[in-house]
Design a protein around this nucleic acid. Structure first.
Lengths: 252, 252
DNA sequence: CGATGGGTTGATCCGTATCAACTGAAGTGG
DNA sequence: CCACTTCAGTTGATACGGATCAACCCATCG
């Protein structure tokens, strides 16, 4: 089937389908993804690259910590988690990525990825060779700025997670998490108040700096308060205002 | 005194000294700062910009959250803290910057700074207009890569802080903080095991996600364990190996 | 000289981790 | 097809780390 392929990643390639190529200008994710905020002329430049698409099966890794950095990846379909491995072997989840979001920018600094990216379901990504992207950026200021913006956005995103971890209690953390998820789903055309979690309680806990038991209890507490209806991974936000109030109470 | 000056920042300009300009190639911080890892020819490009130097007095802000983004800043002398303001008005410190470190990259994403930068002592910074930097980057791939590396490094740095906040106890956090500080001071030619803290217990606590009392107690605990000698802000690491052991025990 | 701010230390309380038991759903193999 | 295991999730009991409240010291400053 798929011929000898690339890197050490445990990526599964589609069986008989030749590597698909995608053009940004005709991609339905263009307003969420890398081209966001770019001038049409710059997007044309991106089109020249025709990024190849890769499937990653649920549970498989797209890249690992320490692996040589070559590509940035954009999620096309499905959800990823990115995580760090702690000294004692445990993992710390530092984010979940969905359609249109970029992964791998932490690899630029040292030429090796600083985190793992793992598919939480069957997924598909666009592979964006960083070298090619740099080439385009050299030719076009607009492109260069877009890349800068994406990276800066990542820094800002991490800021807010640090805030969460540094100064919120369990209810506030979970509320913040759900609100963030809800907004990102809405942006992608899904329901903002009813959705299916792609990650386990343990993964949520690791992301939010709490144990899986506390995550579970907090879900139950929200349910009792009439804020949520929870059935395993199916979440229905029945009182968004109340959920936001929990979040905004913040800190203290 | 200083004539009508620039932005809304409460920057204090030097009295009778004309705005100094600095060239990267002759700067003693060049191996720590932006030029780090650049080819000499690219550094020459930076020299063309001749960054202006600005003094910021202890306690004054270099920029505030929400203020229009224009410049990246490189610390020349002294120490800064960068912080976010929480909904309830409290501040969360998300980092301390010292000589050669860059500040303000979180402003690129939205054209406005996402954090505050405050001087912890009398300081001096190089002002790097982002537009100029982009101009240089367009002309030189090496420059472009250097900027990418600096931003990626910031992302990686935040990763590790998230790890700290998500999965370490008070002793481990303070140990990690002290080791990090020690290493950065050493890089700058200062003693790695004896130094003066520029920040208060409250600022350390806010940075590490704990209260000032716990910071104080943890310092005392380290002292009793024979790891540190502490006298207010003067720190002497008497058993670096033990301190590292505390840190590496990590998690669990 | 009293006021103010940084720091230390003690007593107490609360939130969450930890340990443990249990349920239900989804494989797995005889 | 039914026992068996395995895994995600829930819930309860208990323990502990750190927050909180409070008293106090000391240096600095107006």
């Amino acid at each position: 089937m798929s011929s000898a392929c690339s890197t050490a990643s445990d990526i599964s390639f589609p069986a008989a389908i030749p590597p698909l190529k995608t053009q940004c200008s005709s991609c339905n994710l263009r307003d969420l993804c890398l081209p966001c905020g770019m001038k049409p002329s710059d997007v044309d430049g991106l089109d020249g690259l025709k990024f190849s698409r890769t499937k990653v099966k649920a549970g498989a890794a797209l890249y690992h910590e320490g692996q040589a950095f070559r590509n940035i990846y954009a999620v096309r379909i499905g959800t990823f988690k990115s995580s760090l491995t702690l000294a004692d072997g445990r993992e710390q989840v530092n984010g979940f990525q969905m359609a249109g979001e970029l992964m791998g920018m932490d690899g630029i600094a040292n030429g090796a990825y600083a985190s793992n990216a793992t598919a939480l379901e069957d997924t598909e990504v666009c592979t964006i060779p960083y070298e090619d992207l740099s080439g385009l950026a050299a030719a076009s200021p607009g492109m260069q700025q877009a890349v800068g913006r994406m990276m800066s956005r990542e820094i800002v995103r991490e800021h807010s997670l640090m805030m969460l971890l540094g100064s919120m209690n369990a209810e506030e953390r979970l509320a913040a998490f759900l609100i963030n998820l809800s907004q990102r789903l809405k942006l992608r055309g899904y329901s903002a108040d009813e959705f299916h979690l792609r990650m386990s309680r343990a993964e949520i806990g690791s992301h939010l700096g709490m144990t899986l038991e506390t995550v579970s209890r907090t879900f139950s507490a929200f349910q009792q308060q009439g804020i949520l209806e929870v059935d395993k991974r199916h979440i229905h936000i029945t009182d968004m205002a109340a959920l936001k109030r929990v979040f905004e109470t913040g800190v203290h």
